[in-house]
Amino acid sequence: MALWATAGATGNGKRDGSLGYLVPALLLVVIFFIIPVLMLLLRSVLEPEPGLQNYATLLGSTTYLRIFLNTFIVAAVVTILSVSIGYPVAWLLAIMPEKWSRLVLAIIILSMWTNLLARTYAWMVLLQRTGVINKTLMGLGLIDAPLPLVNNLVGVTIGMTYIMLPFVILPLMGVIRAIDPGILRAAALCGAGRLQCFLRVLLPLSLPGVAAGALMVFVMSLGYFVTPALLGGTSNMMLAELVAQFVQSLVNWGMGGAAALVLLVVTLALYAVQLRYFNPNAAR
């Protein structure tokens, strides 16, 4: 019943009989999403025997808590870096002449379409002890010994920030482009210099885009597997790696399910916060 009510409340006014058309889509969601999640939930409380001992182990061990902490720190740092790098890029893209912004956008999107593994291996080559970055820094005399840039959380953060950037830039660019330049002119004549214009007008108006991009990046980062697995070290695991280890190496579906569900609950909580505070439709 809750589902029907939600559909009715957020639908765009066309309610009469249109719910019938939603049945195939709802079936798809139930079969491929809700049922597997419920099965996972069940296995996490039933295996190896009924009870909450999987969750107790997970949340009671410093090793596992360390992994949760790693995951949140990396996701948070990646989010902050993506937004700080992505915001100016999105702004430039929004105000650039059309032909230049198209070119830059094409490069960004092309990189998104390039195989994820290829891009991650490329970072591995760049970041390794004898890679271009360390060689350049040493050649310039800035460092004496190679920096440990890979097989640790630094590498993971760099690689993931790179992969997440388009997910911040694209929505933000749309939001910034939608801001009427006339509003910024009005702000200027009201006495606002560049900084005031940015802080009092442009930033608040683009905040829904920042929130959307940041949430997307944070949530994706929390569950990201490939980049941490390739660029990370064995000592500093992230949550997705832990789930993979439980399921693939240890065949412990109970623990794997519990770890996955903790991740899901956190994600949903964050989504609820975003809906509550940054939903542009609710704000106006």
Binding site: D180, G182, I183, R185, A186, A187, L189, V201, L205, R284
Partner: peptide
Amino acid sequence: MVFQRYTLFP
């Protein structure tokens, strides 16, 4: 200045 389009801060 008052502009042709609506330029209030939304």
